[in-house]
Structures are given as C-alpha cells and as structure tokens.
C-alpha cells in the first residue's frame, strides 16, 4: 500500500456522462502514487458543512503529466446530498482529497487471459486496469452491465484499454438484454483471471461462478465508509484469511479488492459464527 496524501485539488472539469458525472481533478501527488483499484476520499460541503464523512470514489484514470500537471478522474453517481454537492462543483473550485487509498488489483507477471466485469459505474475502476494488463501482453475482455443504458459507463476512449467490450442492460436499452452474469459461463473456458467491480449482489454471483471453476476473482467491494483511511472501523466485512479464519476486516485498508472466494458474501451484515473474536 502506498502512503496517501491529503491535498486541496482544483476541479479541472466536470462533465455529465449518462446518469453519472465525470470529474477531473488536478492532483499531482495522488496521481503519481495511484495504482489501478485505488480510491480517493473526498470531503463534501464547505467548511461549515453538516456532512462530516468523506465520500469514497474509485479512481477512473490517474495521469502523471499533462497540460494540467497530474490529474485524477472519478465517475460519480449523485444519489445523496454529499454526492449531489460534489457533482455541482465547477472548474477552478478546490476540494479536499485524501488518496490514493486501499489496495490495488494484482497484475499477473505472465500474459494471461483476463475477464473484466463492471456493474454500473463500477466499470470505471477497470479501464486503467485494462491498460496495465495490456502492457503485460494480457488478453483483456470486458463486460459492462447496468439496469438501463444511461447507467452504462463505457466511454469510447475506454475501448482502447481492452480487446473486446460487450454491454448488457436489464431493459435491453443498450447492448444485449440481460445481466453481466449471463455470458460468463461460456467465457470462462478461455479466462485465467476475473476482475470485478460493482454492486455486492453482482460480485457475489460472479465470485460463486469463478470459485466453482477454480478461477481467481479479484472483487472490488463498495462498503459504506466514514473515513476511508482505516480509523473508523465501519466498513468491515467477513473475509476468510490465509489461515482459514474468518475475520471482520476493513474494506478501506485490507480492501477494497478481495479474492471473491474469500469473502463470506452470504454473511455480510452479520458476524458469522466462528469469526475471530466473535460472540461466543
């Protein structure tokens, strides 16, 4: 894990993309440290804000040097007062950002066949991973799914990050009608590793299929967090360690990326019996 920094970032641009907002921030120190899968935590509201808790966002792109110096890009879904404040920021405004945070996707040393699966704006975390995998001569297939077309995040430039991209919507308004899990079984015959980011239900379904086939599945979870840096202990979930012991672990510091077969998906929202230090 790299050391995070806290910095005031200038908003370079804020553009609407379907149901989401694509926000670019000037962030030299964060961009030079960021790896695919890392996230940032943003303080919302002005200095008298009644919203104390930071909002966390997966990094969509981190660019080292450009016309604005280093930049970080995020994809935001405005579904609460904090994210609504954030999507109303305009160019030149400053926001307080901590990052990069969390672990990053493990990238195999050998060229492998990778399947990247994104649900909703969860796909945002996967494009820079696609670039990194392609640099290692991996074969990269991506599936993106959402309920409706406006919730698909798959920008044109993102197609360069992957060898193939297929889109699924539940209502059939874009791509194939169905869910991202529909085509997986047939794709797994030529997949060495899965990377997934999206809603918990999707991650659970994919992890189950991957585990059955013995294929590693790096799952980036989204748990609600108060701080993003590991001090509040609110974003925990039950995960099985290398010693076989289930522990309540922080998704901000030990995650957000976990091997899917190690997460006790069915038990999220509980402390499953046998958990280390659990109720007797």
């Amino acid at each position: 894990m790299t050391t995070p920094v806290q910095t005031q970032c200038e908003v370079i641009s804020n553009k609407r993309v379907g149901a989401y907002y694509h926000i670019t921030l000037s962030a030299d120190k964060i961009s030079e440290r960021a790896k695919p899968g890392n996230f940032i935590a943003i303080s919302v509201g002005d200095e008298k804000s009644s919203m104390l808790l930071r909002r966390s966002f997966a990094i969509y792109q981190a660019s080292g040097r450009g016309p604005f110096g280093g930049t970080i890009e995020i994809i935001v879904s405005a579904n609460g007062p904090g994210t609504r404040w954030l999507v109303n920021r305009t160019a030149h405004e400053k926001i307080d950002v901590v990052g990069p945070l969390g672990n990053s996707f493990g990238i195999p040393k050998e060229p492998v066949r990778a399947l990247l699966i994104g649900g909703g704006y969860g796909s945002a975390a996967l494009f820079s991973l696609g670039d990194a995998l392609r640099q290692r001569n991996c074969r990269v297939e991506m599936i993106v799914g959402a309920a409706t077309a406006d919730k698909i995040f798959a920008p044109v430039e993102g197609k360069r990050s992957v060898h193939s991209l297929s889109i699924f919507t539940e209502d059939g308004s874009m791509g194939t009608q169905g869910r991202v899990t529909d085509p997986i079984e047939s794709l797994l015959d030529h997949t060495d590793i899965i990377y997934a980011c999206g809603p918990m239900g999707m991650l659970q379904a994919i992890s189950k299929i991957a585990a059955k086939r013995g294929i590693p599945c790096q799952s980036a979870v989204e748990e609600s967090m108060a701080c993003g840096i590991g001090i509040c202990m609110t974003c925990v979930l039950p995960v099985i360690g290398d010693d076989g012991q289930t522990r309540m672990v922080r998704s901000c510091t030990e995650g957000p990326i976990f091997e899917g077969s190690k997460v006790r998906w069915d038990a999220i929202g509980t402390v499953p019996s046998g958990t280390y230090g659990g109720p007797k």
Partner: peptide
Amino acid sequence: NPRSGRATPRMAETASGMLNAI
C-alpha cells in the same frame, strides 16, 4: 480478548454528526 465487533451497518451520518456502533 480479541473482539470481532458488531455486524454492519455500523454507521449512519446525521446532521453535523454520526452514529456508530462498532
């Protein structure tokens, strides 16, 4: 002894504050 803490959700943001039950 080691303690697992409670189940989630453990936290709720409130006006100028938060609730926690870790």
